[in-house]
């Protein structure tokens, strides 16, 4: 039985064992095993040439990882918190995402950038942001978010196998929230597919990462109201698995999209736009978003007011069900 953070460490262990070109780079990932222990035991097993404690220098880490990727290595980078990725933003959007295109296929840009993200754990200021939309808006990247220990390992190994650069966002709130059986061997989950956690007939709830347990709880509460909700875990924010969400929306006719990030131009906006372009004829009510407010992520005393929760989701569903 592993927690999500343990399964992430395990995925990296398997990747390091399997391919000698895999390198881990990041701040405090060596002797310390990562501030969340996501690289626990790897420095001891693989040494400081492969599990590399770098200077505190996000642009330096990502930029030099691109050089390593061009030289045929497969870097797995840990950014300590997604909120701290901004110094590397230019490296990611201007270079990592474009090197294959700019060299017309000659130089590799294959790497995984891991970052813990999201709120709900009472973390200090600027440790809880959900800025996934910046990266979903950047062609050339893929963005993947797991929501369980099992899928975390399978998706991370899938991301490592992928020749494209992948931003792998790890919901902080789920790191240790539950344990489950995770095979110790190599396995992958497809990194471009959504996952249906619950089948339902009346409404589709779409979310990812730390929102999934909330959506499952909401679907449970809705059963009491005789409403059957389908829960879809996007998993891949870029690309968006249109087939799965379109099929579900056509079936239920109602969609609620839930994310922690601010509402405006969040990934929910993109999903809503695509639904309105492709399945509007099947919808019985407007598409609804439950999201963070358009304010900077609050200090933790107010994060409960900012974040989506079960009650907010249930209320949104009720609005759609009783929409005239």
């Amino acid at each position: 039985m592993l927690t999500m953070v343990q399964s992430i460490a395990d995925a990296q262990r398997v990747a390091l064992e399997l391919d000698e070109n895999v390198l881990l780079l990041g701040e405090d990932i060596g002797k310390n095993g990562g501030v969340f222990r996501a690289t626990e035991g790897l420095w001891e097993q693989f040494g400081s040439d492969r599990v590399i404690d770098t200077p505190l220098s996000e642009a330096g880490i990502v930029g030099s990882s691109l050089g390593l990727a061009m030289g045929g290595f497969k870097p797995i980078v840990e950014i300590q918190f997604l909120s701290f990725i901004t110094p590397a933003f230019e490296q990611i959007v201007s270079h990592v995402a474009r090197m294959r295109l700019r060299s017309q296929g000659v130089f590799s840009n294959s790497m995984v950038i891991r970052a813990p993200y999201g709120g709900g754990i009472g973390a200090p200021e600027l440790h809880s942001d959900s800025t996934e939309a910046y990266f979903v808006h950047t062609p050339g990247l893929r963005v993947v978010v797991p929501s369980s220990p099992y899928t975390a390992k399978g998706l991370l190994l899938g991301a490592i196998e992928c020749p494209d650069p992948v931003l792998f966002l790890e919901p902080l709130r789920l790191y240790r929230s539950r344990k489950e059986e995770v095979p110790s061997s190599y396995f992958t989950c497809p990194i471009d597919k959504a996952k249906r956690w619950r089948e339902g007939e009346d409404v589709t709830l779409i979310g990812w990462g730390a929102m999934i347990p909330i959506l499952i709880d909401a679907s449970q509460m809705l059963i009491e109201q005789d409403i059957s909700a389908e829960v879809i875990d996007l998993q891949s924010l870029s690309p968006i698995d249109e087939d799965t969400i379109f099929d579900s929306a056509r079936k239920t006719g109602r969609v609620v999209i839930v994310h922690e990030a601010p509402r405006t131009c969040g990934v929910g906006a993109e999903i809503a736009a695509r639904l309105s372009e492709e399945v509007i004829d099947s919808l019985e009510a407007p598409i609804k978003r439950v999201a963070g407010y358009d304010v900077p992520y609050p200090l933790f005393a107010l994060e409960h007011a900012y974040l989506p929760n079960v009650n907010k989701v249930v209320r949104a569903v009720m609005e759609l069900v009783y929409f005239q």
Partner: peptide, 28 residues
């Protein structure tokens, strides 16, 4: 596109961002 076998990277347009890439290549 560099000719086959060349390690001549496309010119970098933003300022100084190619320096970390050179560091990574030197690492490799």
């Amino acid at each position: 596109k560099p000719p086959i076998g060349y390690r001549y990277v496309p010119p970098t347009v933003p300022i100084a961002t190619q320096l970390p890439h050179a560091v990574g290549a030197a690492w490799s």
